[in-house]
Design a binder for these strands. Structure first.
Lengths: 236, 236
DNA sequence: TTGATTAATTGTACCGGTACAATTATAGTA
DNA sequence: TACTATAATTGTACCGGTACAATTAATCAA
C-alpha cells in the first residue's frame, strides 16, 4: 500500500475512533508531517484523497476539518467497489438467478466495446439489504478478463473476487441513471407492482487501461434506495 | 486564474478543437511541460483535475488518453454550478413562482444549520430545457450570505450572480437523492399525474468555510431527466 | 469595549529533483 | 515466425524547498 493511502486510512480511522463530527478540527499539516514522518507533499496527497471522498475539507489559513453528512441510511453513489464497502453494519445478501456464458446482444456488445461473437458472463441477481429487497441486477462481464465465475462467487462480492483473485483493478466507470416504471418481470423480483416507480442505473466499468470489462443494469426498489453524493466545489 | 487551472482549460479546449474521442492519445507529460513552460508538478495537477472531471485518464508507462462518455442527452450530476454550465447548446428557461424573504421551517433550518428566526430567501421555480418541463425547485438561501435577490436574477442563474456579484464561492455540497411519487402540487407544475414517478434531490451547498448557505429541493420530471456520473476507480 | 492594524498561523501553488513501476518497443533466440 | 529477454518510454510516488494568500490571534488606538 502506498504511503499516502496508508496515511489517509489512518487519518480516517482516527476520525472514526475519536468520533469526530462535522467541523471538528484535525491536527495541522506540520504535525501530521512529523507524526507520520513523511514530507509535506505526501500528507497533502493523503488529505486531497480524503477531501475528494468527502471525509474532510481544508481551509487555508485555518486548518483541516471533518466533513460529515448527517443522514443515516443513505448509501454513497460511488460504490465503484460494489456496495459491500458501503453498508456499515447492514447485511447484504443475494439471490443468484443466473450465471452463464453467452453471446452479448447488440446493445450489450456496444456498451462493452466488443463484437457479438465475443463471450461474456451473464449474471442475474436480486439483492437484499437486511433482508429487504434492494435491487434487481443484470450484468455482463467480458470472459476474456473474467474467465471464470460461479454461483458462490457471485453470491458474494464479484468485485472482491475479480480484484483479489484475478488482480484486475477498476480504472473508472460511467454511470447512467434514469427514473422510470417497472415492467412485469422487475416488479415480480422486487415484490412491487408493474408501473411502480424505479431508478435504473447502467454502469460501464473500465479497466485502468480504459477498456470496458463490465456492463451492468441495476433496477432499484424505490422505497429502499436512497443515495448521497458528496461533491466538491467548482473545479475540484 | 491559477496556472494549473489555465492549463487544464487549454488542454480541454484542445480536445474539443481537435475533436478527440475516447482513447485518443494526448501529448506526453514532458511535452506539455515545455509547451506551457511550467514544471512537471503543475502539469500533473492540471491533469489530475481533468481526470477527476472525467475528461482524461492517465496510464503509467503509456500516456494520457481522452475519456468520453458516449450518451448525448445525459446531464452530469455534478452541476454544482447550476445546470447552466452543463447544457451544451440546449436552452434553459425558468418560471419564477416565488422570491421572498421568510423564516425557515424547522427542517429547513436544520438543514441550513441555523435557527428558525434567521432570515432566508425562498425561491420557487419551474425550469425548462428547450421548452420542456425539466424540474420543479424550491430553494432557500441564507440572507446573511445572499442579502438580495429578485425575479430577474432568479430567472437566470442564481449561482452566476452569487459568485460574480457577491464573490461567494461554493466549497462543497451534499446531495441526497431518492425516488418517489409526485404529489398533486408537483404534478401540476410538471404537467404530470399525481403518483407518477419522480426523482427528488435535496442539496445542501456549503461555503468554503464549511457553512451551509443554500438548501434546495428539486423534483425532476422523470421523462426528461437523465444523469451521468463519471466516477474514478477505487480510491479515485 | 469596540474597531482597526499588525503579526502569527496554516494551507496552497509552484518549482525541480530522484527513484521507480507499468507499459511498449526493440533486439535476440529458437 | 513466435517467443523471450532487454531496453526505452512514460506516468506516479515521494522528497524538500520558496513564496504566498486566507484566516485567526494579538496589539494598539479611540
Amino acid at each position: 500500500m502506498l504511503k499516502y493511502q496508508q496515511i489517509a486510512a489512518e487519518i480516517e480511522q482516527y476520525i472514526t475512533n475519536q468520533d469526530l463530527k462535522q467541523g471538528d478540527k484535525l491536527p495541522v499539516l506540520e504535525q501530521l508531517m512529523s507524526q507520520y514522518s513523511v514530507s509535506k507533499s505526501t500528507v497533502t496527497k493523503a488529505l486531497e484523497l480524503l477531501e475528494r471522498r468527502g471525509v474532510i475539507f481544508q481551509l487555508r489559513g485555518s486548518g483541516i476539518f471533518v466533513r460529515r453528512h448527517n443522514r443515516p441510511g443513505y448509501m454513497s453513489l460511488f460504490s465503484t467497489q460494489g456496495f459491500k464497502s458501503n453498508l456499515g453494519d447492514r447485511v447484504l445478501t443475494s439471490d443468484v438467478l443466473d450465471v452463464s456464458v453467452t453471446k452479448p446482444s447488440e446493445d450489450v456488445a456496444e456498451n462493452l466495446g466488443i463484437g457479438v461473437s465475443d463471450d461474456v458472463y451473464r449474471v442475474e441477481r436480486v439483492r437484499y439489504v437486511d433482508g429487504e429487497v434492494f435491487c434487481y441486477e443484470v450484468s455482463y462481464y467480458l470472459k476474456a478478463i473474467v474467465p471464470y465465475l460461479n454461483r458462490e462467487i457471485v453470491a458474494d462480492s464479484i468485485f472482491d473476487y475479480v480484484q483479489s483473485a484475478l488482480g484486475v483493478t477498476i480504472g473508472f466507470s460511467d454511470m447512467y441513471m434514469q427514473v422510470g416504471r417497472l415492467n412485469k418481470t422487475e416488479a415480480g423480483y422486487l415484490g412491487l407492482q408493474t408501473d411502480d416507480p424505479t431508478l435504473r442505473i447502467e454502469t460501464i466499468f473500465h479497466l485502468t487501461n480504459g477498456k470496458p470489462f463490465d456492463y451492468s443494469r441495476i433496477t432499484y426498489h424505490y422505497e429502499h434506495s436512497q443515495f448521497v453524493v458528496q461533491a466538491n466545489g467548482p473545479y475540484m
